[in-house]
Nucleic acid binder design. Structure first.
Length: 414
RNA sequence: GGUCCGUUCGUCUAGGGGUUAGGACACCAGAUUUUCAUUCUGGUAACACGGGUUCGAUUCCCGUACGGACUACCA
């Protein structure tokens, strides 16, 4: 397989969800498997949702779990900048091209007008209330306005968005590596906003432009993007990039441990397990969310557990180092169905990894929990050597000490 | 509501037209361990339902049910 160029493209709106870590992991595994490149791109086109510190948090989290970035905001690369807010001019240019070639148009409708349109449609019993081929000619845009009216509005600085002109009747097909052929009729897709009135692109435009420019070969992302994938196919076509279009792989979602639905912060809190790699304090609410790291999980155990949520090697081996994962990974073996998040299994993995760790490595965890200089390195390693058989979390090394030690042979230091 | 996606033990999953449907977590029982933990052995437990196709379907096709995602100037 030729070297893959893949990207993980989170938006800095808060802590990195564990599902995002898995998405990053699968991307990383494919990159390393093919001797390819792992790219980190920050999708910060929504200024209203920007959360300070989130980008640094994402970087630190990926580093902690052992996902190394080849190109990205921190290390740069041939396609810099890797932050979308710094690439505004690029998107504008392609949006213009789409307009010039008749594949996109200016729309001046206010929020109230859009709302009114939806209500009107709803009243007639229409199944979907969309800005689309059936409604666009009733709206305030460069398709309905004369050339001079449009020029005038533009010159006057009236707020506008740029919308994609979706063909009214056409079957759009795409081949997903996980799901096979997926077909969607263009009448089901609305005239998505490509450029917002603040001059920023939406995800749809930015993602297609960047993936093309950065020569991405595989787009591995969450299933929530599957419905809009045909729209992206349309964009590749209109931009003349169909031949360079990356291959798509839409990952099944991580589900709640009990019942159904997307795994959320709330479920994690309820069940008493972390949902983020590292501790995260929301800068707005001041609320602290626990991380796997601070909860006593080892990064390689977490990775092993996560890899197996939706993927398996087809053998009966359960314990895989990152290196082994890279060796045996293929996108073809990713499952189609969502996987429930079973924290008990994560704990089992953690215990297995803890047991397998060298004593002196474990000693660092114990020492960190003890008052400084209260215990020598050698002594700590010895204690860990005995304790590691009976603990699940790194912090158990310190807390289990007193209660367990009295049952142990006298040969080890107290 | 509409569109799309999905469905094998409680959970993660292997498998695939003819199998005792395999493994792991969890659970239960026993053994080892001066208690606990570890370890070992064994056990309970699954092809959502209905129609086709076929000599034969859990596996292929079509429906149904159920679940999920999407349906923003959010990603």
């Amino acid at each position: 397989m030729p070297p893959a160029r893949v990207r993980f493209a989170p938006s800095p709106t808060g802590a990195l969800h564990i599902g995002g870590v898995r998405t990053a992991l699968y991307n990383y595994l494919l990159a390393k498997k093919t001797n390819g490149t792992m790219i980190l791109r920050i999708e910060d086109t929504d200024q209203t949702r920007y959360v300070p510190g989130a980008e640094e948090y994402i970087l630190k989290s990926l580093e902690w779990v052992g996902i190394k970035i080849d190109e990205g905001v921190a290390q740069g690369g041939p396609h810099a900048p890797y932050r979308q807010s710094e690439r505004k001019a690029i998107y504008k240019q392609y949006a213009q091209k789409l307009i010039d070639e008749g594949n996109a148009y200016y729309a001046f409708d206010s929020e109230e007008e859009l709302e009114a349109m939806r209500n009107r449609l709803k009243a007639t019993g229409s199944t979907h209330q969309q800005y689309s081929a059936t409604t666009r000619m009733m709206m305030d845009n460069s398709l309905t306005l004369s050339k001079s009216e449009v020029a005038q509005k533009l010159a006057a600085g009236n707020p506008y968005v740029i919308r994609l002109k979706v063909p009214d009747s056409e079957e759009i097909e795409l081949n997903d590596l996980i799901r096979g052929e997926v077909k969607v009729h263009s009448s089901q897709i609305d005239d998505k906003v490509l450029m917002k009135s603040d001059g920023m692109p939406t995800y749809h435009l930015a993602n297609v432009v960047d993936d093309y420019l950065m020569q991405i070969t595989h787009v591995i992302r969450g299933e929530e993007w599957l419905p809009s994938a045909p729209l992206h196919v349309l964009l590749y076509r209109f931009l003349g990039w169909e031949k360079q279009m990356p291959q798509f792989a839409h990952l099944p979602l991580l589900l709640k441990p009990d019942g159904n639905g997307k795994l959320s912060k709330r479920d994690a809190d309820k069940a008493g397990f972390p949902l983020f790699p590292l501790n995260w304090t929301d800068p707005n609410t001041g609320e602290l969310s626990k991380g796997f790291c601070e909860s006593g999980y080892l990064p390689d155990a977490l990775i092993n557990f996560l890899a197996f949520l939706g993927w398996n090697p087809g053998t009966e081996q359960e314990i895989f180092s990152m290196h082994e994962l890279i060796d045996s990974f293929t996108v073809e073996r990713i499952g189609k169905a969502g996987a429930r998040f079973d924290i008990l299994k994560a704990q089992w993995y953690n215990q297995q990894y803890l047991k397998a760790k060298p004593d002196d490595e474990l000693a660092a965890y114990l020492l960190a929990a003890l008052p400084s200089n209260s215990c020598s390195k050698e002594k700590a390693a010895k204690i860990c050597g005995v304790l590691k058989e009976r603990v699940t979390f790194t912090h158990d090394l310190a807390t289990q000490r007193a209660s367990s030690l009295k049952h142990l042979p006298n040969t080890i230091p107290r």
